[in-house]
Design a protein around this nucleic acid. Sequence first.
DNA 1: AAATATACGTCAGCCTTGTTGACATATATG
DNA 2: CATATATGTCAACAAGGCTGACGTATATTT
Lengths: 165, 165
Amino acid sequence: MTVSKTPPDHDASSVEPQDMEDMEGLRQAIELLFFAYRDFTAEPDAILAHYNFGRAHHRVIYFVGRNSGITVSQLLDILQITKQSLARVLRQLIDEGFIEQRQDLGDGRRRLLHLLDKGVEIEALLTARQAARIAAAFAAAGADAPQGFKDVLRGMINKKDRQRV
Amino acid sequence: MTVSKTPPDHDASSVEPQDMEDMEGLRQAIELLFFAYRDFTAEPDAILAHYNFGRAHHRVIYFVGRNSGITVSQLLDILQITKQSLARVLRQLIDEGFIEQRQDLGDGRRRLLHLLDKGVEIEALLTARQAARIAAAFAAAGADAPQGFKDVLRGMINKKDRQRV
DNA sequence: AAATATACGTCAGCCTTGTTGACATATATG
DNA sequence: CATATATGTCAACAAGGCTGACGTATATTT
């Protein structure tokens, strides 16, 4: 392996374009988002591992729980993954009795997804953990912080999906 | 395939434990976080694909850029992945001339990581895109929103890493 | 009624990025 | 000199993305 020998540097202060005076604040936001999301997902991931499930299962369970009777294609719109990727985890969730699909009486091509008891249970557990983390952060921040938090997140979402939440 | 036939239901309103009166707001936050992070990462991912890089490369480039001279183990602490996972992408980044490692003169076991020109360039591009998205969201939200946004995110990070940002 | 479009499922194979476990080397430190 | 630390690497595996191809049931259009 080739390793060059040089004194440790500290890269002084780098030049920032003047039209980006607030770059530092934006970089802070980028990093906070990384760390927060990292820890926000790590906790559910650990729980899911007990069921031999992963983050992909979590997403499906969550959004089916939140939108009972959602169709497969609506779920695909939310997750923005391919149907093959969804099929893999959905099949497991159905086979293992966490989710049930019923045929839509109006349009027989559609499969309406519903959580079964086991699904409701794990959804509640996972959501409770994530909600608790957010609730703690809300409580620690100022009273106006939750609104600011949500408003900024909403603004970060592509227009098309902003009205979803 | 077995599909039960039942009329479409709307699952009425589910029961919420009374100690979680604000559950709706917390669920909103959970979903906003999901959608915002999804779109926040999708844009860089698309750019990185042109270089045959992925999200893992982005993280390394970003944090090496932000912490010039960072060691491998410090980077591992941030990313919270195994050294083998890091090694795979780091090797590519070094081989392809995006990152350089220099030996620490104080402690010769350490490798200090630095962006090379190509690395600086792509880092700037990716960060500019993400910063622009956040800047737009900041501008669209109220003047106090950015502070609330950051405060809540900070509160969501595990204590150990809160002081990082 | 026939043709086409839509919703969904599935098979096969590939890639990235995470994991574990084992082991090697250089350098620091006790 | 012995041990601990920082790093690198090989091998194998799993999760969860992807593409492409194809099948079937149901709706819709012609």
